[in-house]
Amino acid sequence: MKKKYIQFAMPKECNGSSMYDLLSHLGEDYMRYMSDFGEITEWLIEFSDFGKPIREVGFKRGEVILKLPDNEIVGFWQNSKLTENDLRMFFKVSIKSESIFQENWESFEKTIYNFQTEIKKYRYVINIDDNEDYSYLKTIIKFKDKRRVLRIYFSNKEGDNTIQSYNFFNYSILKICGQLKNYGIDSDLYLLESELMD
């Protein structure tokens, strides 16, 4: 099966724009699209040999911030049932190679298991609401060549917050591993089920 890959920029304006016309054509709500995908400035889409969308990558200012489908969301373009030729009618597209698509697809991972990091400076953020403890450590790390805020949560298998069981002042450097959640470049990183390493 020979696949095709096209990339196109989203129009900046709403009224009279290609995106507005396209969503009207699909019977989709423009505001709902903007709420879910409004940050995306470019799309890169993989098509089957029949011209049907298979996978899609969303960009913001050149950074991959979304890839679909995933375990939670069906791709927007896949769900639209539009073909490659349909999109060519609405957008100025450029042809991309399979290797470029795959490189961008793999560059964004929402979850990284057994992620390890070392931190020296951090803040202990106390967050208790309705007798539930959501306290965490907050720091800045370099992740994929970007400075990102990292929130570190400690919990046991039952999901109870265990941060109070640690005496962080005994450590000059915290070596931590956990499950890293990356929701995009404009969001904080979250390290869940964190543990101190020896």
Rank of each mutant, 00 (worst) to 15 (best):
K181F: 13
Q179I: 13
I65C: 07
N71Y: 04
E46M: 08
I54D: 04
L180R: 04
L68A: 11
D49N: 15
L196D: 05
L180S: 06
S194H: 01
F168L: 08
S135C: 09
K120Q: 14
L150S: 08
L150K: 07
R88M: 13
N156K: 06
I163V: 09
I100F: 11
F154N: 03
L68P: 00
E195R: 15
E63P: 02
I73S: 13
S48V: 00
Y190H: 13
I185Q: 08
S99G: 07
F91N: 07
G62Y: 09
M89L: 14
D160Y: 08
K181V: 15
L22W: 00
S107A: 06
K121D: 15
K3G: 06
L23H: 07
L189M: 05
L22T: 01
L189F: 03
K96H: 13
E118D: 10
F8D: 04
S172H: 08
E46P: 00
R148Q: 11
S18P: 00
D186N: 14
I141A: 10
E193R: 14
E72K: 15
E132N: 14
Y113F: 14
E72P: 00
C177I: 11
G184N: 05
P69L: 10
F90K: 02
K144V: 03
K142V: 12
K96D: 02
S35K: 13
E109A: 12
M197I: 15
F8N: 03
L22E: 03
K142Y: 08
Y166G: 03
D49S: 15
I126Y: 05
F47R: 00
Y33Q: 08
R151C: 10
